[in-house]
Design a protein around this nucleic acid. Structure first.
Length: 428
DNA sequence: CATCCACCGGAAATAGGGGGGC
DNA sequence: GCCCCCCTATTTCCGGTGGATG
């Protein structure tokens, strides 16, 4: 009897139906407004089913425009097709390896990931890369050997191998060499082939690329446009139907979320907002999502994004950004000198502060050369912005400015750096 | 105009963690 | 165990750069 009351209560306040559907990695069965892109990429990839090498394809689109989703969808379908004996009576072998180059950021790591992938070490295959390695790792092997292993497994099994390199712009070391290796292997292979799908959200990638790498990678190009508000609404509705209980999300709320996300055309952001708004609604015990929940969710999501970015940074980069935050709230030299309200800092003063925090925490400070790299990386992450000094300063320096509120950043970092008790002793 | 400043960023050198092969 | 190779991260070296200074 009491259980009934509990259950009734639980059901009444139930907001979600299936949170998995709202997770960022979920690939739905239907991808609204990407039908054309799916068709194009399927066409690019399909020759593999005839044992022909697909064109290497370069896909550009800002975050949240569905690149990863579409590509994963297509390669999943491709493999399903290839693994179905009725549809693929000749048993043509198609393998796809997906990787995110944020983690595999060098030629070597990319090669390792390919060779250690389960799909290339399947027991049905001959000459698998790991067959003579009891420790199941190829770390430390010479790149020439890695190349031979790749050649052998592809050649002796006549594999149509498709590599998906997501965030390909993050490959810094050996990118051109990697592209070269992957083209050369096609020339040398007697059977099978290797093709590349490269995804990026950074247009500058193309400019930076060696022309030869570019022509290798960009045999075909696709651009994904940002979603508009109407399209975002369809996407949200689709997830709401399966992810939320009925009646929890009104159309007004959908429009509101779509409008926020339409500024960048970012579907991932829209889904994050939706999910967060649902969580907030559930936690306060309301029955449906209200406008105020969405507003609150917006702040929370933005905060989460920064907190996530900062807390996964290496320690020294955390120290750098902490120094910037500390100086920003204290004013910085520019403000002191000019009396203007700008929050800009000089490279030099930030470095000095960084050194002081290092001393405080008994860490060895990196040299200024390395420090300068850290600044560049922080800028790429959007945590700070920099511009070259113009008139009014001595020499060339960079003005550094925090992208977010210094207090937020300090409080996130104080814990992870263990600065809580030491803060008072900070030298000025 | 010469020179200095304060920093930038490429390249080579070095350190340190693994591993192979004998 | 020894010698050598590879990888990554960091330091060292050094030739710029754009403006300020005198």
């Amino acid at each position: 009897m009491m259980d009934d009351i509990f259950e009734e209560e639980i059901n009444r306040r139930r907001i979600f139906k299936d949170t998995l559907i709202l997770s960022p990695h979920y690939v739905p069965e239907e991808l609204p407004h990407r039908e054309m892109e799916i068709r194009d990429i399927t066409r690019s990839v399909a020759p593999a089913l005839r044992n022909e090498k697909p064109s290497n394809t370069f896909i550009y689109g800002k975050t949240g425009t569905g690149k990863t989703c579409v590509v994963r969808y297509v390669i999943r379908k491709l493999e399903e097709f290839a693994n179905n004996p009725e549809k693929n009576p000749h048993g043509i072998i198609v393998k796809t390896v997906y990787m995110n180059c944020k983690v595999r950021d060098t030629k070597y790591k990319v090669l390792l990931k390919i060779l250690e992938d389960k799909k290339l070490n399947h027991p049905d295959l001959k000459n698998t890369p790991l067959s003579d390695r009891p420790q199941k790792s190829l770390k430390g092997m010479d790149p020439g050997d890695l190349y031979d292993r790749l050649y052998n497994v592809v050649n002796s099994n006549e594999i149509n191998l498709m590599l998906v390199l997501d965030e390909i712009d993050m490959v810094k070391k050996g990118f051109d060499d990697l592209m070269y290796i992957l083209t050369r292997i096609n020339d040398e292979l007697e059977y099978g082939n290797v093709s590349i799908l490269g995804l990026t959200n950074d247009m500058k990638t193309l400019r930076r690329m060696d022309p030869r790498s570019r022509s290798t990678l960009c045999q075909e190009e696709r651009v994904f446009k940002p979603y508009n508000a109407v399209q975002l609404k369809t996407i949200l509705k689709q997830r709401i139907d399966n992810g939320f209980q009925e009646g929890v999300v009104d159309t007004g709320v959908v429009s509101l979320i779509a409008a926020f996300a339409a500024q960048d055309g970012d579907a991932r952001y829209a889904l994050k907002l939706l999910r967060k708004a649902g969580e907030i609604t559930r936690d306060v015990g309301d029955e449906k999502i209200l406008k105020k929940h969405v507003d609150e969710a917006k702040d929370a999501v933005e905060n989460d994004i920064i907190a996530e970015a900062i807390s996964t940074l290496p320690e020294h980069q955390q120290l750098v950004i902490y120094s910037i935050a500390a100086l920003t709230s204290r004013g910085g030299m520019y403000k002191r000198l000019s009396g203007l309200g700008g929050g800009d800092l000089f490279t030099g003063e930030v470095y000095e502060t960084y050194e002081k925090y290092c001393k405080l925490l008994n860490r060895k400070a990196r040299t200024i050369r390395q420090f300068s790299e850290y600044l560049n990386e922080l800028e790429m992450l959007g945590l700070i912005t920099m511009r070259m000094s113009g008139k009014g300063t001595r020499g060339t320096t960079r003005f550094i400015r925090l992208g977010y509120s210094p207090d937020e950043i300090k409080s996130i970092l104080r814990k992870s750096l263990g600065l809580e008790d030491l803060e008072m002793k900070t030298p000025s």
